[in-house]
Amino acid sequence: MKKALMPLVMVVLLALVPYVAVQFAGLDFLFGVIVPYVAIVVFIGGFVYRVVDWARSPVPFRIPTTCGQEKSLDWIKQNRLESPSNFWQAAARVLSEVFFFRSLFRNTRAELHNGPKLAYGSSKWLWLAGLAFHWSMLVIVLRHYRFFIAKVPGFVQLMENVDGFLDVTLPALYLTDVVIVAAVTFLVVRRFQDAKVRLISLPADYFPLFMIFAIAVVGIFMRYITKVDVMSVKDLMINLVHFNLTLPEGIGALFYVHLFLVCVLAMYFPFSKLVHMGGIFMSPTRNLSNNSREKRHVNPWNPDIKIRTYAEYEDEFREKMKKANLPVEKK
């Protein structure tokens, strides 16, 4: 619990800052214009820096983790996804991780029974919650696109219609809003409940979960309860996109809380574990094909190493070798 307290306090403070600043100090411009620009620069710059930094370190060896039959004899069926032998198969493997969390799907839970006896049960909850969380986040982010352009494009409209098909509230209840709150809640509870995960959890693990939870909850509040003035928000965002630095009136402090938390999360992103989004694409145990005996993989820093040559070996053992009738190079 102690490890969750610090991030909790941090998120509460971060939420209070813009509220107080806008409500009581009139700092709308700072939080509505300056902070978002800074955030976007830090986010993009930081993320690009991280990816370039990874890319600068070479991949000296071809080390896919093979999770299926390799390509070998013609009559033995290769597992193309888990033991890919060319670029396309490896790409499919990476995409199956990105879109479906394939490896996480394998998850099991080990239990120690008396005997002692180990049993491995299927354990797909993390996979399910993880997928629900990420997919709903993706849909929510894409849905926000409508705030940034005057005419809402067709695919966003379609997404909104599908997401809001339940139509039980006014405005229509988005399914993803419910899912993301539930999924994040599950992920937090899991960190407390599972002793193993609780032990390895750092404040830095609770922080993004609390941030995302707060962002989602504030957003839901604005949409369904306080009914923020969507048109002014849209004006602000379109202004920002066009580098028009005027602030529409009457947006309300709650919106600035939402926006500020998003900005902080974006700035935090490149310097935290959230870079896993880029990491998955570059992971050498997943994105390389298992063909290292077929095609030579080159290590750019392959060191020159002095080996003990056969000649040195023979020099040391020549007499013994001759006695054992072994052929020698030098008589």
């Binding site: 990874w54 370190s57 991949v59 099991t108 998955i280 145990t285």
Partner: peptide
């Protein structure tokens, strides 16, 4: 870190989800 992308990447990307935790024979 400069010579092995694996090293750098694996230090940076772990989200401490714990999926690996009970997979190691030494832990078990």
């Amino acid at each position: 870190l400069e010579r092995f992308r694996s090293f750098k990447l694996f230090l940076d990307t772990c989200v401490r989800c714990g999926a690996c935790a009970d997979k190691c024979h030494f832990f078990l």
